[in-house]
C-alpha cells in the first residue's frame, strides 16, 4: 500500500539515530580549509599571470626595439616570482595544527609575513620599475642610436641655457630623483594597496573568522 508522505516522514524519524546532531567541536573546519584553498588558488593564478607576462615582455621588448626595458622588467618579474615561490612553499607547509583556530592563526601569520615582505620589496621594486622605464627609453635598441642623447640634443637647441650635469639636463635629474624618492617612500603603501586589491576579500574573511573563534573561545 502506498504510504502518505506525512506518514513516511513521521515513522522515518521515529527510528533510532535518525536525528543525531553533529558535534560542534570542530567549528569552521570546512570554512578554514575553503578560505586557505581559495587564497592558494588565487595566489597561484597570480604567479602564473606574472610569469606569463614576464615571458611575453621579453620578446615583445626586442621586437619593439626596447630590449633594455624588456630585460630590466623581466628581472623585476623574476624577482617577484622567486619571492612568491618562497611564499608558496611556506603556504603549503602551514601547520594545520589540532584545530581550525590554530590553522587559521598560522595562515594569519603567513599573511602578515607576506604583507611585510611585499611592503619592503615594493619600496625597492616601484623605483626600480621607474628607473627601468627611463633607462629602457633612454638607451633604446642595442647598437642603434641612443634616443636619450638625441632627445637632450633637441632640448639644447630649444633651450640653450639649460644646465647639464654629465650630459644630462639638471631639471630632468631633479625630476627623476624626486619621482624615485616618492616611489621609494610610498612604494610600501602602493604594494600593500595592490595586495589588498586582489586579496582583500580573503583577508577580511580571515579576520572575521579569527574574531568569531576568539569570541567563541571566551
Amino acid at each position: 500500500m502506498e504510504k502518505s508522505i506525512e506518514s513516511i516522514w513521521k515513522e522515518g524519524f521515529l527510528k533510532k539515530d535518525a536525528l543525531v546532531a553533529p558535534k560542534l567541536n570542530n567549528l569552521y573546519n570546512q570554512k578554514s580549509k575553503h578560505i586557505i584553498d581559495k587564497f592558494q588558488r588565487m595566489y597561484q593564478i597570480n604567479r602564473i599571470a606574472i610569469a606569463a607576462f614576464a615571458l611575453i615582455v621579453l620578446p615583445v621588448s626586442f621586437i619593439s626595439k626596447l630590449p633594455y626595458l624588456g630585460v630590466l622588467m623581466f628581472i623585476a618579474f623574476a624577482i617577484i616570482i622567486a619571492v612568491s615561490g618562497r611564499f608558496m612553499k611556506k603556504l603549503k607547509a602551514i601547520n594545520t595544527g589540532d584545530t581550525s583556530y590554530q590553522y587559521l592563526n598560522s595562515f594569519n601569520e603567513f599573511i602578515k609575513d607576506l604583507l611585510s615582505v611585499n611592503e619592503k620589496l615594493s619600496r625597492f621594486l616601484y623605483p626600480y620599475i621607474f628607473i627601468a622605464i627611463i633607462l629602457g627609453f633612454w638607451f633604446g635598441d642595442i647598437g642603434g642610436n641612443i634616443p636619450g642623447k638625441e632627445f637632450v640634443s633637441k632640448l639644447i637647441v630649444d633651450y640653450p641655457d639649460m644646465q647639464l650635469v654629465l650630459g644630462l639636463p639638471l631639471i630632468g635629474i631633479f625630476g627623476a630623483t624626486f619621482i624615485i624618492f616618492i616611489l621609494a617612500l610610498f612604494g610600501g603603501i602602493i604594494g600593500t594597496w595592490d595586495i589588498n586589491l586582489v586579496y582583500s576579500g580573503v583577508i577580511k574573511k580571515l579576520e572575521e573568522l579569527i574574531g568569531d573563534m576568539e569570541e567563541l573561545r571566551n
Binding site: K3, I5, I8, W9, E11, G12, F13, K15, K16, D17, A18
Partner: peptide, 10 residues
C-alpha cells in the same frame, strides 16, 4: 543515508 529506506526515498 537514514536507517529508514522510505525516508531515504522521500
Amino acid at each position: 543515508q537514514f536507517v529508514d529506506e522510505s525516508l531515504n526515498q522521500l
